[in-house]
C-alpha cells in the first residue's frame, strides 16, 4: 500500500548502487530464464541492460533514497514516443541506439562526428546521483552514468563567438512514433548558455543504474542538467551545435509564457498554471518543498547573480 508517511531513512540503510545493481542482475537472470521463450519481450529490454564497466563514483552525490529502477524507467516524458508518461516505456523499443553518431559543430575549432563508442571512451565514466525535478511538480533521484559535458566541449575548442550550445534530439519517424503528432515543433531542440554547458554538474549521460540508458530514458546519449526542470535535459541527442545567439527550445516555442529558456528550478516563480513551491518525490506520499536550483544553489547560483530570475524564468 502506498498511502503512508515516508519513514526517516538513515543514510546507512539506503541501498548502495552496487547492491542495487546486484539485485538487478539477479532479477535479470531470473527474468531471462523465465522469459527464455518469449523473445519479443527481451528485444525491447536488450537495448538497456548492458552493464557499463569501470565507472567511478563522481562528485555532487546525494544520500537521498534512489527512485526505483522501475519508476525511473516507466514514468517518462519523452513525447517522441507518446505524450502519456507510460508511453515511452511501451513504445521506445523501436528506437535503435546503435549505431549512433553525434554531430558536434558550429562555432568550434574542431567540429566532428562522434560515434557512440568513441563518446563512451572519451572520458572516464562516473556514477552521479542527481535529483531530477520535472516542471510538472514531481521529482526523482537518479543514479546516472556519464561524464561532464565539458570534457567534450574542451576537446572541440569553442570559438570566442560561441555563446550558447544547442542540442538536437533524433527526428526519425520510423523509430519514434510520437513524431507523427505535431504536439511540439520537431526535432526536439534544447539549449544552454555556454557557461551552463561547461559547468561541472552538466552531464553527458550514457547510462543509469550502472547500465546503458534504456531507450525511454534517452538512449544512447543525453544531457542531464540537474538544477533545471527536466525538459531542459535533451534525450537521444544527435547534434551539439555551438552558436552565437540564444537558441529557442521546443517547449519555449510551444508556450513561451510557461517554459522559459532558463527554466532553473525555482520555488518562488510559479508556472502560470500551477505552483512550483512543492513537489512530489516519486514513491513518497506527502509533497516536499522544492529547493532553489533543485538544491544545487551552492554550485550554480553564482552564474545567475546578475539575472532577474522572475523575468528570465
Amino acid at each position: 500500500m502506498l498511502i503512508q508517511r515516508p519513514t526517516d531513512i538513515l543514510p546507512s540503510e539506503i541501498t548502495s548502487p552496487e547492491i542495487y545493481r546486484g539485485r538487478r542482475d539477479f532479477m535479470r537472470t531470473a527474468g531471462s530464464l523465465a522469459l527464455a521463450g518469449s523473445l519479443g519481450l527481451q528485444a525491447a529490454d536488450a537495448a538497456a541492460g548492458v552493464k557499463l564497466a569501470g565507472t567511478r563514483p563522481g562528485p555532487y552525490g546525494t544520500s537521498e533514497e534512489l527512485t526505483s529502477y522501475k519508476d525511473v524507467t516507466t514514468y517518462n516524458n519523452f513525447y517522441e514516443f507518446g505524450t502519456d508518461k507510460a508511453d515511452p516505456a511501451v513504445n521506445a523499443g523501436s528506437l535503435n541506439p546503435r549505431p549512433w553518431t553525434v554531430q558536434v559543430d558550429g562555432l568550434v575549432k574542431r567540429p566532428g562526428q562522434y560515434d557512440i563508442d568513441a563518446l563512451l571512451k572519451l572520458a572516464s565514466l562516473e556514477d552521479r546521483i542527481y535529483r531530477m525535478r520535472c516542471v510538472e511538480g514531481w521529482s526523482m533521484v537518479i543514479p546516472w552514468v556519464g561524464y561532464p559535458l565539458n570534457e567534450l566541449i574542451r576537446r572541440v575548442e569553442p570559438l570566442g563567438s560561441a555563446k550558447y550550445v544547442e542540442f538536437t534530439t533524433l527526428n526519425d519517424r520510423a523509430q519514434m512514433p510520437g513524431l507523427r503528432s505535431p504536439v511540439l515543433d520537431w526535432p526536439y531542440t534544447e539549449g544552454l548558455r555556454l557557461d551552463e554547458a561547461q559547468h561541472p554538474l552538466t552531464l553527458l549521460a550514457v547510462g543509469l543504474y550502472g547500465e546503458t540508458l534504456p531507450n525511454q530514458n534517452g538512449a544512447p546519449v543525453r544531457i542531464v542538467v540537474p538544477w533545471k526542470y527536466g525538459f531542459k535535459s535533451a534525450k537521444s541527442i544527435v547534434r551539439i551545435r555551438f552558436v552565437e545567439h540564444r537558441p529557442v527550445s521546443s517547449w519555449e516555442k510551444a508556450a513561451p509564457r510557461e517554459y522559459g529558456f532558463y527554466s532553473n528550478v525555482n520555488p518562488e516563480v510559479d508556472h502560470p498554471r500551477w505552483s512550483q513551491a512543492r513537489e512530489r518525490r516519486i514513491g513518497e506520499f506527502r509533497k516536499r518543498a522544492t529547493l532553489m536550483f533543485n538544491g544545487y544553489g551552492e554550485q550554480v547560483a553564482r552564474m545567475y547573480t546578475n539575472l532577474d530570475m522572475r523575468r528570465y524564468y
Binding site: 500500500m1 502506498l2 516507466t74 514514468y75 508518461k85 512530489r280 516519486i282 514513491g283
Partner: peptide, 13 residues
Amino acid sequence: GLLSDTLGANPIE
C-alpha cells in the same frame, strides 16, 4: 489499482 500498486509511478496523480 491503488491497493495492488498497479497505477504506475505516481499513483496519487
